[in-house]
Write a protein that binds this DNA or RNA. Structure first.
Length: 730
DNA sequence: GAGCACTGC
């Protein structure tokens, strides 16, 4: 190994989210007060690195409109700064200190930790808000943790966020879409509310560009003259972390096959290095399964001597029980090897890792506004990501990180930061949200990172075709405002609006809930459990694929997947929401409970914005029409004489195929499902609409429903008559 | 007969 690896000079210090993993995943009852041991809470707080900056932070917040805290992980900034602010009086007079997080779980965990440190009941002085859970008390809560998405929603009712005295945006370096929009809007609010203070918590590299983004001093002087108040130039403060050093080793030669290299590096570490668990970062399930299999074979070949390795895959699609294995403590004399996706980079923290192997790649989403298709591709990570990965080795003692790329590559070729999510995504949701907040000039909006004009224009086009924006790109009334109120993709929201007129809103709301669960995580209620991540209402299980397929057939509707969802929901409901029923039918019980929850929320919103709740009593024609009204842009036609099931999109003649997971993949025959109206038997429907595309070697349509082409011109005449002569549709 | 980086309202 010493020939293969060259020690580098860089020794990053580590530690992220003491507020994260430790709290969730430790087998110790770390969130109970016994976890604090002999030391008083006060003493423990004073031991955190951030403590010696307490006075400085308070001074800067007092005197600067924006303070940027460059906090290495483990500095204690997230839990301590809100408490310092409260102690200094920023929550006096009914004001509230807000602290945002990108993830729900982090919100819950940090809030309960801070409540515990302050010796108060969660939901009183310290509270939190995430979707479906508002654990705060008006007039009592002084420190409030929330996801940045929730804060954005709050701005719809209170655009200036008047109840907050200080807003701390944590993990800003992750540059999620919500964080970016939030920062752009906060910068605007700041001009109108000189009393508001912002704290942006960011990683090292970006601090300067963040500072120039928030530097509005010149503009302020021009417009308002010299005024009393905080300085508008942001202050930057750096707080060190509390991790152990991690020694970096680079590959001497470029690595052509990181799967193979990862396997041999694991074996070298196991042979030559002292005990300590290994974490390997790869890109996805395929890589991971390959490495797991190769390691298992190697262990078998070597015989009993190498049986000290416990090899565990980790990715979000893994069944919950398998994910849990990763968090069980390593038995004495054994070495755990976790082969993981990026999920271990930000979302969860493993204890006991001493060695990290970094492939240098991850899967990233890219959006092509021309084709309007989002692709998931394997791409090189950034330096920031590489540092984060390396840091995972230094949580319990000094560690080592093996990078499967050369030092020259790291220094000269790797990008400093990743591309912000907003520049890699479809902007439809984000733009309607800005419109609803009164930001009319989208192209002129001051973004922390501006999306491409093409992407913005494309999103405006889509919203226009949905009837959500008018000719002046203003929200239409009432449709535009209604769509903006519904916390879902605008195409789904439009589908819900149309269902109101078609008399099938109860059914469509069920479908909307199922469609949104498919991208959703199901976080369990308590802080001490990790989130079970779901991708479908079906149980995931590679082992029982055949049984799963058979179970699916019990619900399969000839109309397509959306109607199939209705059959599943109906069965679940009739069983009394029974978990045994789910188990028997290969339906994911937790996912169904979430569907029920989201469905209830959507019904409440629907009633609030004046959508009539009505069931169509089995009239699937109405249901399919409503789906068409939202997703007409995704219409496809079966190629004539195609025996391979080839479709083409109407909009751009893209070649697409029905995904094998769809019930229409094997054009289903009529089943016993009670809601079913027979449409076709055993042949591919000529016209379909898809909910989303998955791109691999082919473009696959996921969640497909058959339609009648005349509906297209009926529900979206502007779209189809202008762009496509009606003759094309027949 | 194929495939799912990661979040969130």
């Amino acid at each position: 190994m010493s020939q293969f690896w060259k020690p580098g000079t860089e020794k990053p210090r580590l530690l992220d989210d003491e507020e994260g993993g430790l709290l969730f995943f430790s087998s110790l009852p770390s969130s109970s007060s016994s976890g604090f041991g002999y030391l008083s809470i006060e003493r423990l707080r004073q031991r955190l690195p951030v403590y010696k900056y307490r006075t400085a932070i308070l001074y800067l917040v007092e005197n600067h409109a924006t303070t940027i805290v460059v906090g290495e992980t483990g500095s204690g900034k997230t839990t301590q700064i809100p408490q310092y602010l409260k102690e200094a009086g920023w929550a006096d007079g009914g004001r509230v200190i807000a602290c945002t997080q990108p993830r729900r779980l982090a919100v819950q965990a940090v809030a309960s930790r801070v409540a515990e440190e302050m010796g108060v009941k969660l939901g009183e002085e310290v509270g939190y808000t995430i979707r479906f859970e508002d654990v705060t008390k008006n007039g009592v809560t002084m420190i409030k943790f929330l996801t940045d998405g929730v804060l954005l929603r709050e701005m719809m009712d209170d655009p200036l966020l008047t109840k907050y005295s200080v807003i701390m945006v944590d993990e800003a370096h992750e540059r999620s879409i919500s964080t970016d929009i939030l920062m752009g809007l906060l910068r605007k609010i700041q001009r109108r509310r000189p009393g508001l203070r912002l704290i942006i918590s960011s990683a090292t590299i970006e601090a300067k560009s963040m500072a120039s983004f928030f530097n509005s001093s010149k503009k302020r002087r021009e417009t308002e003259g010299e005024v009393q108040g905080p300085r508008m130039e942001p202050a930057i403060l750096s707080v060190e972390g509390r991790g152990f050093n991690v020694q970096i080793h680079y590959a001497e030669e470029p690595v052509s096959n990181y799967v193979q290299a990862a396997v041999s590096t694991v074996l070298s570490i196991h042979d030559q290095e002292p005990t300590g668990d290994i974490l390997v970062f790869l890109t996805g399930q395929d890589d991971i399964d390959a490495v797991v299999q190769m390691l298992n074979e190697e262990v078998q070949n070597r015989g009993r001597n190498s049986s000290g390795l416990i090899i565990l895959p980790l990715y979000s699609g893994l069944p919950r029980a398998d994910q849990e294995l990763v968090f069980t403590p390593t038995p004495r004399g054994k070495r755990k090897v976790v082969i993981s996706t990026n999920v271990a980079e930000t979302s969860l923290t493993l204890e006991g890792i001493v060695y990290v192997i970094d492939s240098g790649f991850s899967k990233q989403r890219f959006y092509n506004p021309i084709s309007d298709i989002e692709n998931l591709v394997v791409a090189p990570i950034s330096k920031a990501s590489a540092r984060q990965r390396a840091g995972r080795a230094g949580r319990i003692r000094p560690g080592k990180c093996y990078r499967l790329y050369t030092e020259e590559y790291f220094v000269n070729e790797m990008a400093t930061e990743g591309i912000p999510e907003i520049q890699r995504s479809n902007l439809v949701s984000c733009i309607i949200q800005l419109k609803a907040l009164g930001i009319d000039n989208i192209l002129g909006f001051n973004w922390p990172a501006s999306p491409s004009p093409e992407a913005m224009v494309r999103a405006l086009e889509v919203l226009y075709s949905l009837g959500v924006l008018d000719d002046d790109a203003k929200l239409t009334s009432p449709a535009g405002f209604q769509v903006a109120e519904i916390p879902l993709d605008p195409m789904i929201s439009k589908m819900i609006l149309s269902s109101s007129q078609l008399g099938c809103s109860e059914e469509i709301i069920t479908i909307a809930a199922v469609l949104s669960i498919q991208k959703y995580n199901v976080a369990l209620d308590t802080v001490n459990k990790y989130s079970a991540i779901l991708q479908s209402i079906w149980v995931s299980g590679r082992g029982a694929q055949k049984e799963l397929d058979e179970a699916k057939l019990r619900f399969a509707a000839a109309e397509g997947d959306h109607v199939t969802f209705l059959n599943v929901y109906k069965g679940f409901f009739q069983s009394g929401k029974s978990s045994q029923w789910c188990h028997k039918n290969f339906v994911n019980y937790h996912a169904m409970k979430k569907v029920v929850e989201i469905r209830e929320q959507l019904r409440r919103i629907a009633q609030r914005i004046g959508i009539a709740l009505k069931s169509c009593e089995g009239d699937m024609l109405a249901v399919r029409k409503a789906i068409t009204a939202g997703f007409f842009a995704n219409a496809c036609h079966l190629e004539a004489h195609s025996h391979s099931g080839k479709y083409k999109t109407i909009r751009s003649s893209q070649e697409v195929y029905i995904h094998p997971s769809s019930v229409l993949f094997r054009a289903p025959k009529c089943t016993l499902a009670p809601l079913l109206t027979v449409v076709t038997f055993g042949v591919n429907p000529k016209w379909v609409i898809y909910h989303s595309l998955v791109s691999t070697d082919r473009q696959y349509m996921r969640n497909v429903i058959s339609i009648d082409p005349s509906w297209l011109t009926e529900v979206a005449p502007h779209f189809y008559q202008h762009q496509h002569p009606a003759s094309m549709l027949h």
